[in-house]
Design a protein around this nucleic acid. Structure first.
Lengths: 126, 126
DNA sequence: CTGAATCCTTGCCGATACTG
DNA sequence: CAGTATCGGCAAGGATTCAG
């Protein structure tokens, strides 16, 4: 990651920094809207407005906010076409697609256990 | 899932219901604290207080709140030992463990791309 | 069409106190 | 020790407006 001058081994400070960074990334990514956007993007390239239609219930603001975050972390790429009206397209980068694979698994999980969960809820709610 | 009286095929209403349920479950589960708790539990059985120590930075309230949610959805099991002082233990159920497997993948992902992301951030922030 | 900025409301979340 | 309830601050997030 970072080239140390006097040792190839990370020291404690490095490990703590990496941990807190990992935690930060996890917090960025482990939120509903971010994951839904990633899932919506998939392998496709979508415009801002297409994304807003695709991600059910997301507001203009949440979409831009999360797209900025994804772009900042290098998970999505933002391509501006200097036309009028402007046309902005978003695509997942390779790290983004790798993350999407895991999101897919969560979706699979959701559907596989839909019945279990529905039952569990009924039992709990009584 | 639900046995229909006149048709084995789900009608549109069923599909819409299933979708909104899936979305609801996804929203429950796709949040930082829930995922961190699931990850902390792993294959172990932990007491409330152990969990609080294990999940860095979580408050008493968030912990109970999320544990209730996990219990309600049948992802974690809550076992009360009627001793004094009380002793309450939490364990992941099979659906919970299945979900944890995917959370593990997200953690792996985080660590694998830590460097990419750090670089992307530096570039973006300038 | 995108996006930034503003206001304003809602609800999250932490702190605290109290029960069993 | 574990859980619930209450209160309050503050940040998340919605609606709207303006700009490029």
């Amino acid at each position: 990651m970072v080239t140390k001058q006097f040792s190839g081994l990370p020291d404690e400070a490095d490990l703590r920094r990496a941990d807190s960074l990992a935690r930060e990334i996890f917090s960025d990514v482990a939120n509903k809207w971010a994951l839904l956007i990633i899932e919506a993007l998939g392998e496709r390239t979508l415009r801002f407005s297409e994304l807003r239609d695709e991600v059910e219930g997301i507001s203009h603001k949440m979409l831009t906010q999360n797209l900025r975050m994804l772009e900042r972390n290098g998970l999505a790429e933002r391509k501006v076409h200097p036309t009028v009206p402007p046309r902005v397209e978003y695509t997942l980068t390779e790290p983004g697609r790798a993350l999407r694979a895991t999101v897919d698994l969560i979706c699979d999980w959701t559907h596989r256990y839909l019945g279990h969960i529905e039952g569990a809820r009924r039992r709990f709610d009584s």
